[in-house]
């Protein structure tokens, strides 16, 4: 008995999101493994005026951290590479990294923190 090819109903619907979690695309060195990088903290916090003695503002800067389930901006240091600090936008739930840039550029153009 010779069989015929019968297409079964696909058992699953293929839907795919490109996850790039283990590789960070350093704008200077190119795509590198995450082990070369060191996490340097929340990039959305705002450092108060250095001369300020407003304890609420300093407390917020030094101690308060948001932990959003979703997109977050954070500092990473390419410690095992060019030693540049990067600002990375990462989805905290899926680890999808949507943007990588030099921290210097972002900060000096005023794009650091919560500002878009």
């Amino acid at each position: 008995m010779t069989g015929t090819i019968e297409k079964q109903t696909p058992p699953q619907q293929i839907r795919f999101r490109d996850k790039k979690t283990m590789i960070i695309k350093c704008p200077y060195c190119g795509p590198r493994d995450v082990i070369e990088f060191t996490y340097q903290g929340d990039a959305t916090r705002q450092r108060p005026d250095p001369a300020s003695s407003d304890q609420t503002a300093w407390n917020a800067y030094v101690y308060d951290r948001t932990n959003p389930m979703g997109s977050h901006r954070e500092f990473w240091l390419h410690a095992g590479g060019c030693r540049q600090h990067l600002i990375i936008t990462r989805d905290m739930a899926t680890h999808v990294i949507s943007s990588v840039g030099f921290a210097r550029d972002a900060v000096s153009s005023g794009r650091e923190g919560d500002r878009p």
């Binding site: 060191t38 340097q40 990039a43 450092r47 500092f75 240091l77 410690a79 030693r83 540049q84 600090h85 030099f102 921290a103 210097r104 550029d105 900060v107 000096s108 650091e112």
Partner: peptide, 12 residues
């Protein structure tokens, strides 16, 4: 690393 952080991320 502390100094590099401030130069890159606080006082570029």
């Amino acid at each position: 690393q502390h100094l590099e952080f401030y130069l890159d991320c606080v006082w570029p």
